[in-house]
């Protein structure tokens, strides 16, 4: 396969789909363009037991393409209004892939606001469902920039999802059972399964060095045993990605829509 046949966004979708491979029967919620395509790709290639949702109020067995015409929408297999999403997530039978604004070395993340909570420099969304999600079921993250503003030194400004830390666990409470599957970035695939839940790089995207990733990360990163190069998407995956996103919305996800394999500097 030539190096210009897939984009970085497509490489990330393919890598992100693998987060759902060993989930068994859960609801896969990819929130945002790339995670949603990834969940659909996982359902079609890696884990047929996944239950999908349309992002509004229905459960699906067939992934819903982005921008699909009303008459081409797959039928719903179940009803999944928001109240049932909460019931589902409390049961633990869900895997959400989300895009936080900040992530720290404890896998804590932030979507609430930047700066001082009581007078924010930048107000974001609020914590939304992150606190409950983070202690109830498996979660993955996909971010569209990899730098020290995203992977912050110290801790995130407002801890919206719980991580591998006891600092915010009150006395007598159980430490939450946090389960982060994968973190997919424009540079690499990571997890937090190193010693003492340390962040570690599982694979580097083609042409990316570990040093570059470490420099762009505000906390210490380990090389996972067997750290590899991220597997490039095969033709079948690329075809499915195109079917799930016929208008190429994925091209807008990463600044400049770079190719999946780094081009040598001119």
């Amino acid at each position: 396969m030539s190096t210009d046949t897939f984009t970085l966004a497509e490489l990330m979708i393919s890598a992100a789909a693998r987060a759902f491979a060993n989930d068994g029967e859960v609801m896969a919620n990819g929130i945002g363009t790339l995670p949603r395509i990834a969940a659909g790709l996982a359902k079609l290639t890696l884990n047929e037991k996944l239950m999908l949702s349309d992002g509004e109020a229905y459960a699906l067995e067939t992934p819903l393409p982005l921008n699909v015409a009303l008459e081409d929408r797959p039928g719903a297999s179940g009803w999944m209004p928001y109240h049932r999403v909460f019931e589902s997530l409390w049961s633990g039978r869900r895997h959400a892939m989300v895009t936080p604004v900040q992530i720290d070395r404890f896998a804590q993340s932030n979507i609430s606001c930047l700066g001082d909570f009581n007078a924010p420099k930048v107000q974001l969304l609020g914590v939304r469902g992150f606190p409950g999600n983070s202690i109830s079921h498996r979660n993955s993250m996909l971010v569209t920039s990899h730098d020290r503003r995203t992977f912050v030194p110290g801790e995130v400004d407002v801890v919206s999802s719980a991580g591998y830390s006891d600092r915010l666990v009150p006395e007598g409470a159980k430490r939450p059972e946090v389960d982060i599957a994968l973190v997919v970035t424009p540079l690499c695939v990571m997890d937090f399964k190193g010693p003492d839940n340390a962040a570690q790089v599982l694979s580097l995207h083609p042409g990316v060095s570990f040093e570059e990733v470490a420099d762009a990360t505000g906390f210490e990163l380990l090389r996972a045993p067997g750290m590899a190069v991220t597997a490039v998407p095969i033709d079948e995956e690329l075809q499915i990605i195109r079917q799930l996103d016929p208008d190429n919305l994925r091209a807008r996800a990463i600044k400049g829509d770079p190719p999946g394999v780094r081009q040598e500097a001119a």
């Binding site: 804590q108 609430s112 909570f117 009581n118 914590v127 992150f130 606190p131 409950g132 983070s134 202690i135 407002v158 801890v159 919206s160 999802s161 719980a162 991580g163 830390s165 915010l168 666990v169 009150p170 006395e171 007598g172 409470a173 159980k174 430490r175 939450p176 946090v178």
Partner: peptide, 28 residues
């Protein structure tokens, strides 16, 4: 259990914990 491990507890200081009257007395 929601809020445990997050700043929801920090920035809602009116939130109190309660011990389960059953089993191991887990703080919620």
């Amino acid at each position: 259990r929601i809020g445990i491990g997050t700043d929801v507890l920090t920035y809602n200081p009116h939130l109190k914990m309660v011990n389960s009257p059953y089993g191991d007395g887990e703080a919620l």
